[in-house]
Design a binder for these strands. Structure first.
Lengths: 228, 228
DNA sequence: CCTGGCCGTCACATCCTTGTCACGGGATCT
DNA sequence: AGATCCCGTGACAAGGATGTGACGGCCAGG
């Protein structure tokens, strides 16, 4: 299911939130301050961020602005959390780009409900250009590969190869077909080059526990499939 | 790449869409009203239609209905575009047979993403080319042999042999015919080689409880059949 | 100019595939 | 029954196909 990033400087609060969210089936990652959050965003791809208004050093507001300005993270909805329930704050928070606002103290139940609502809202039925198979998600717009919110680093050629295979999952292709489709018909490269790229992809996927998705079809070529 | 037909009465809108789509590599053709669209459909074969809800004369909804009724154009996916973002419209549009729905104003990026998504969804229904006889299934696209969902490992030559025999079930072939069909007429191998491959196939099938599908026709050769 | 990432090739190690044989059990015909 | 013929079966060696690590060239960013 979805991955939620909690950014709050109080470990206790984080623990409470984590408990409530994990109980509902979410995956939770935490950051104690803005810098840690920024760092985490390099390797993770949360579907939603729960951001405390007050953070040591820079405020959460500032972090929110940054996230919304960065094209990579812009699409990720943010829920601001704050002890100050003032109307003014609420407005400022939403102006910054936050997608919702929760005032402390809040009931875990309310929070879970809001998280669900925001996720539902931010993910309109209109399928964005994503494919998800076997727990692996590839997004050709943001050009990213993720598994359970964890980002998987993939070089450009490997990305195109993976994207093509996932777009035609369950179907076996010869090396020659893959070269035509992924490299282009004009380009001449050795067929064995495909093998090497498959190898690199497999390595990358294995590091996040995704195994056996890129299958060898002996005498033919390769196939992407989540079935054994 | 794919061809997209835009049907909209506002040239400006068409221009915006054309620009976004052509930038992504699509070929674009345009129509300013329903009649022009119908005429274009005679000579062109778009892969997808972007159809404005409101058109002078007859509404886009009507055109969509017509297109979906005509067997020639039925298979072409339609995305309805509308300024009216009402839930009701969305439902009516989809009921008519539209494959997706975009509300104005939309970002070009979102539109491209939707176009891609719809194309992906509607296209891959390629003929799966499966044969199933006696509980045994062979799929020449994914290159797989299964029985009750259980995969059966088969080497390339055995795959081709089994595929040929299953494609012509109930029919007996001599070893010589099989060699011609499966190995190729140019290749010379001993006729007894066929026996060995049949043997290997039988072994593989037996392991999943499928017995007696590859039948010996004494004095002739072999036959695939689910009847005893 | 240097550094790091990306990519296409190689060479080598493995594992798999496959065509043949040889042997033996049945079936068929005389 | 005996003589043949046909087919099932297990073993095997050579050749092929794929996995894998390393290397050098190229290019963009610093």
């Amino acid at each position: 299911m979805a991955t939620i990033l909690i950014v709050d400087d109080e470990p206790d609060i984080r623990e409470v939130i984590r408990f409530a969210l994990e109980g509902t089936g979410f995956r939770v990652i935490e950051a104690g301050h803005a810098d840690e959050a920024r760092k985490l965003m390099q390797s993770e791809e949360p579907d939603l961020i729960l951001l405390d208004w007050m953070l040591p050093g820079r405020s959460g507001l500032e972090l929110a602005q940054q996230l919304k300005q960065n094209p990579k993270s812009r699409g990720i909805p943010i829920i601001m959390v704050s002890a100050r329930g003032e109307e003014e704050d609420r407005i400022r928070g939403l102006e910054t780009g936050a997608d919702d606002y929760i005032a402390k103290p809040f009931s875990p139940r309310e929070m879970v409900a809001r998280v669900n609502a925001v996720l539902r809202r931010s993910r309109p039925e209109g399928p964005t250009d994503q494919i998800e198979i076997g727990g692996l998600r590839i997004d050709s717009v943001s050009h990213r590969v993720t598994a359970q919110g964890q980002r998987i680093e993939v070089a450009p050629t490997e990305f195109r190869l993976l994207h093509f295979l996932m777009s035609h999952a369950e179907r076996a292709f010869t090396r020659s077909q893959l070269l035509d489709q992924v490299w282009g018909e004009q380009i001449y490269v050795e067929e064995r080059t495909v093998d090497v790229h498959v190898r690199r992809l497999r390595k990358a996927l294995e590091e996040t526990g995704h195994d056996n998705l890129l299958q060898t079809v002996r005498g033919v070529g390769y196939r992407f499939s989540d079935k054994p």
